[in-house]
Design a protein around this nucleic acid. Structure first.
Lengths: 197, 197
DNA sequence: GGAGTAAAGTGACCGTGGTCAAGTTTAAAT
DNA sequence: ATTTAAACTTGACCACGGTCACTTTACTCC
């Protein structure tokens, strides 16, 4: 039987997350160093690894929280009226992930949407994404904007695949001009959701 | 002006690749250690990094070669007659990548198909994939097996996205039962290529 | 209170990828 | 044959993530 964690432990965990968040705001995700986090939090290195499986585990919590916040914003938006609207709604999420390769890597690693450990924030965020996308797709199907020969859940899964695809491409090319990841997404989504003539 | 590489250098490079290949055959990609490679090749550690940008660079060469071999086999096959055939043809490639997370990670990192440095084997292999897929798609379009409202190249790009998607899922779940990555691919491909009624 | 026990935290230590100033080999120039 | 500069290689060194036997703290029961 496992007991409830002590107050001290909760405080330590909070300190680790708080300081990590601060360092990320200063230098970005890629530059985060475990040594820096524990130094600022005033704990030993080993402590961090008793709270999180590894550095990626810590990052996953922080990234999961950010994605959840983005999902809140998404859900507050009105339902898209066409595929371009849909693309625009996805743009903030895409831009967040596109900011740093580490974010993309972590999310991809945990993207087994319907995986076992549900209590992980990241996994929850994927469920929300699928649900949200499915809901929007349902509406678009009912208004005849998009194809109706596939289940909303399948179409939502496909959109996730395309999101990851454009992000993977994003990290392989230079970006002098002001292009965004979502501009590459639109043609794929239009073809995937192709409204029948 | 850069001179042609000396004979000694070519031999060193060949030795590094040969020994790395051997170690991978013994222990798999994930277990490869730089120290082991240089020891077997009889060179110093620094030498490896003068031949390859980093460990991933070495792996990319070896993985690229394997993918090229798989592409040779693919191109030797007759053109698929329907989407299920297509799925079967992709299965060997999928199984190769599914064998080890490292393989997937490396390929994903270099999957910016039409990227700058063309002389990289991995990049070349992506071009071949796109070309091969496009060719197959053209045939299927002409026989009326699949949709004709999108360019073969776009449909091929989408297939790549789905390949990566099912692989990402593959690494997120356990596999007791004898399922393969390509079984998850089929429904996505059928919907993506959906023959109009 | 004090003894006993489980939780929490510690930091020296390790493995591994990657660097770089210095040394060695090669081959072109004379 | 000698010189010379570039190509090539070396290995001590560093950075960073992660481990684990041990110490300290907090809770429980008498």
């Amino acid at each position: 039987m496992t007991r409830a964690p002590q107050k001290r432990r909760l405080e330590t965990r909070a300190a680790l997350l708080r300081e990590a968040e601060g360092l990320i705001l200063e230098n970005g995700f890629s530059a985060l160093r475990v040594e820096d986090v524990v130094e600022r939090a005033g704990v030993a290195k080993g402590t961090l690894f008793s709270h999180f499986k590894d550095k990626d585990g810590l990052l996953a919590v922080l990234i999961g929280a950010r994605v959840m916040a983005l999902m809140d914003e998404m859900e507050a938006q009105p339902s898209p009226e066409d595929v371009e609207d849909l693309c625009d709604l996805l743009s903030p999420l895409l831009c967040f992930i596109a900011q740093d390769r580490v974010v993309f890597d972590i999310l991809l690693r945990y993207s087994g949407s319907t995986s076992a450990v549900i209590d992980e924030t990241v996994t929850q965020s994927f469920h929300r994404q699928i649900n949200q996308l499915s809901a929007w797709i349902s509406v678009l199907q009912n208004t005849g904007q998009i194809r109706q020969d596939a289940a909303p859940e399948l179409l939502a899964e496909g959109i996730q695949a395309f999101l990851n695809h454009v992000l993977a491409l994003w990290f392989c090319v230079d970006h002098e001009n002001g292009e965004t990841p979502s501009s590459a997404l639109l043609p794929l989504l239009q073809t995937w959701l192709a409204a029948p003539a």
